[in-house]
Amino acid sequence: MNIAVCIKQVPAKDAPLQIPEGGAWIRETDIGFETNEPDGYALEEALRLKEKHGGEVVAISMGPERVKQTIKEAMAKGADRGIHVVDDKFFQLDPLGSARSLAAAIQKEKFDLILTGLQSDDHGFGQTGVLLAELLGLPHATIIMQIEVQDGRMRLKRELEAGWFQWMEAPLPAVLSIQSGINKPRYATLKGIMAAKKKEIASIPRASLGVDATPTQKVERIYVPAKTKKTEILTGTAREAAAKLVEKLKHEARVL
């Protein structure tokens, strides 16, 4: 079973976000980047499927040179090789433009299954998997909590809202978006890190894919949202702030 996993690199969770005046993206200098956490669950699921059914796992990422690090980390955990769709201005692409580019790269090969995470922690569009399925002409399912493969078909557990789930069946090949929490992603071992050095990353300039990436939508500007609620920040030492809070909850909010 040959599996492609789409993995995004995003600004680190604790990175201080600076927005240039009137900017539509953050200032990228001086911040760290990391693998998009939801995609880690998709990678882990791919590795487990491979361990069970054989085949190979290919990590695909799009973006500037720095995303090679994310691919390397995936290979250190067990992905067999990587595909890097190179685009320095990747952040300007809209969901459809991104998906068209990824689809063109994926189409150069033959995969039985394509996995994505639920959504990215930066843009948070949450559309890539569904769009890939449409563009590749494949069936799909999203927010998946369990995958069982048998005789070329899958039995899938989909998460619905408010604690509900649903079983469904889908043929292969297909595209699945994996729900965070489906598994416990592994850490890379030293052996894995050493092995990854010998694994191959194919670089494909996005421009060479000949994809129409005319945006259907454009982020005009990003900004720190205006407060909808007036928050009273209680200052002082932990003890002082706690004492103030108890006072407020008792006499102002009257909830104690």
């Binding site: 922690d121 005319t214 900004y223």
Partner: peptide
């Protein structure tokens, strides 16, 4: 223009259709 959140709610974004 539609407003949506980015960076897990740390920023908002104004987004307009192009096509």
């Amino acid at each position: 223009v539609f407003v949506r959140q980015m960076f897990q709610g740390k920023t908002a974004a104004d987004v307009a259709f192009q096509a």
